[in-house]
């Protein structure tokens, strides 16, 4: 195989990985602040994907343009879910919270199955087959737009947490729950906002990824697992770690698809997860566990 193929596949994996990273970023924000493991993460992603598909099919709206409205919609869903379902579970044991989210996941995935059926749905944009040639390397236009959009959203989120007063308040709440209560922060509302923000991330990621991937309901659990693998690999609660983990997994999958068979690519993601859990359980960018 000529060397350009490797480079092409690597760049494609990297760009897909950025979208994965954005999805995982949402999980990381939720876990980092609310300390609840969102087991319905991938299912929420597929909800966003189906919204994008419907908007495109019915109204001809481009998923990239719809990225922000879909993110806003998912924000509202996330906010409501935290307020109605998860806040009463904050003091419950870990496995109880986990089962709650599993229940939500089962309902979402099978609800989608009832509404949309098991067949794959796809978005065919006018630029679906465009590509850019940079020297010997050919970059797929959709993947380039997808990667750029993911970077844009992630950057906005970083800026929010770094500079906005509300973002700082959420970070304070994540660092010290009791402290936040003492200084009079409305923790329940901040939790809901954080879950909303995390959901908005998957919303944006879902709108972007329909450009690259066909959507079916079982994609939900697969993405949940992928998001976990990425976040654990990158470091639970670390935002840069989530992006880095996303890129790493995107690259690994692309390379595995090239060297082995595409259907076995997620085996390599699992292998990475097992290695990380064993040798660096805090993840690449995570703080050392005590």
């Amino acid at each position: 195989m000529p060397a350009e193929i490797y480079l092409n596949v690597a760049i494609s994996g990297l760009l897909t990985g950025l979208v994965y990273g954005l999805m995982a970023l949402g999980l990381s924000v939720i876990f980092g602040v609310v300390r609840v493991v969102n087991f319905a993460h991938g299912e929420m992603m597929t909800v966003a994907m189906y919204v994008a598909v419907v908007l495109f099919a019915q109204l001809g709206l481009d998923p990239l343009l719809m990225m922000l409205p879909i993110a806003a919609l998912l924000f509202a869903v996330g906010y409501a879910m935290q307020m109605a379902l998860i806040n009463p579970f904050i003091a419950r044991p870990e496995h109880s919270q986990f089962m709650l989210m599993v229940a939500v996941a089962i309902i979402l995935v099978n609800g989608l199955l009832i509404v949309f059926g098991p067949d794959a749905q796809t978005v065919q944009t006018s630029y679906a087959f465009d590509s850019f040639a940079v020297g010997p390397v050919i970059v797929d236009a959709t993947k380039l737009y997808a990667g750029l959009a993911a970077i844009l959203v992630a950057a906005a989120l970083f800026a929010f947490f770094q500079f906005a007063p509300l973002g700082k308040a959420i970070r304070a709440c994540a660092d010290n729950y009791t402290g936040a209560l003492v200084v009079g922060l409305d923790v329940k509302r901040l939790y809901a906002l954080s879950f909303g923000l995390g959901a908005a991330c998957v919303g944006a990621a879902g709108a972007i990824i329909v450009l690259i991937v066909d959507v079916t309901p079982p994609l939900g659990p697969a993405y949940t697992l992928l998001a976990f693998i990425i976040v654990i690999t990158g470091g639970l609660g670390s935002m840069p770690g989530a992006l880095l983990g996303g890129i790493l997994i995107g690259l690994t999958e692309a390379m595995a698809g090239l060297f082995f068979t595409p259907s076995a690519k997620s085996m390599f993601a699992f292998a990475i997860l097992v290695l990380v859990l064993l040798f660096r359980p805090q993840g690449i960018m995570g703080k050392r566990l005590t």
Partner: peptide, 22 residues
């Protein structure tokens, strides 16, 4: 009879039990 109906039911059962009878 659609393929997902039974599992939505599973999900709702689980949700109710986890919430009401932990």
């Amino acid at each position: 009879d659609t393929p997902g109906a039974k599992r939505v039911f599973y999900g709702v059962c689980l949700l109710v039990v986890v919430m009401v009878l932990p």
